[in-house]
Amino acid sequence: MIRENKKRLLDKKNYRNEPCFETFTCKVCGRTVIPEGAGSNHRNHCPECLWSVHMDNEPGDRKSDCHGRMEPIAVWVRKDGEWAIVHRCTVCGKLSSNRIAADDNPMKLMAIAMRPFTSGAIDKERIKNMIATMEEEPDMKK
């Protein structure tokens, strides 16, 4: 137990309590990502293509053996009004959420946010009918 604690102290690849200032190359688009300009101490995705890599089981522990690419599937708004990206591992299907950084590509973020409106999974006719039944104008129709 003591040895384990000591190992954890010496192990530098543990970012649960400390910020991570590592430069990495994006696995998807090949861009070199530097920690400066993120406005966040925990950047985990490429600012250009927004893809991430599955490294952690718990945030910051670097203990995953999967190392699959993580696709940005959705954005959501936190309680404090900030956006966060939901990533899904293409290999094992793990989901995780991360705050957006200051230099993330705004056009890509908007594209992800607008995705539900461009697909026809919910029938437009159905919503139209629903609204039509709520509006009270029976005399007009007759």
Binding site: A74, W76, V86, L95, P116, S119, G120
Partner: peptide, 13 residues
Amino acid sequence: AVWVKQDDTWDII
């Protein structure tokens, strides 16, 4: 959030 999959089906997150 809503996840739009490749085959145009939706999942709720």
